[in-house]
Amino acid sequence: MDLSKTFDKALWVFHMNSGSCNACDIEIVAAITPRYDAERFGIKLVGSPRHADVLLFTGPVTTKMKDRVLRVYEQTPNPKVVLIIGNCGDTTGVFFDSYAIEGPIDTLLPEDAHIIYVNGCPVRPENIINGVKEAWIYLEKLRGDDK
């Protein structure tokens, strides 16, 4: 999959909560507001997975949200990167022994999904920006035209 040059400096991100405790979600918003201002790097939160290049998943995936997680993943156009925000998305964290948890997310996604883990409970906004940067580096390597 080749990306065009116009892709540069325009990384669109869709955030989905699959049953997290909200802390990581709030930190994601904190990352786009003035103190951390991720938007100055061209990172933008969008309202639909169909517009997104990067998926931010938080939470350990509750039973009710499982199908929705997969649907959101499928709806996102290729090439895409999945960013798993927070320990509970990574390993289900403190929620590990619950009956209502289907996660962690990476066990549900297809094998070839490109996943970046951003750790912390909750993660710090700086760390989220760093994660998005890594996604960026990965996606920019896919650029097709003059490099």
């Binding site: 909560n17 049953g19 405790c21 802390a23 350990p60 509750t62 039973t63 009710k64 949200m65 509970c88 964290g93 403190v94 929620f95 022994d97 619950s98 009956y99 209502a100 948890i101 409970c121």
Partner: peptide, 23 residues
């Protein structure tokens, strides 16, 4: 967003529940 928090809490000792409760 049902995560079964109460159920998990009932399988941990009170000390371990504190970090769970804040989540």
């Amino acid at each position: 967003n049902h995560r079964g928090i109460e159920f998990m809490g009932m399988h941990r000792n009170p000390m371990e529940v504190i970090p769970l409760s804040e989540r």
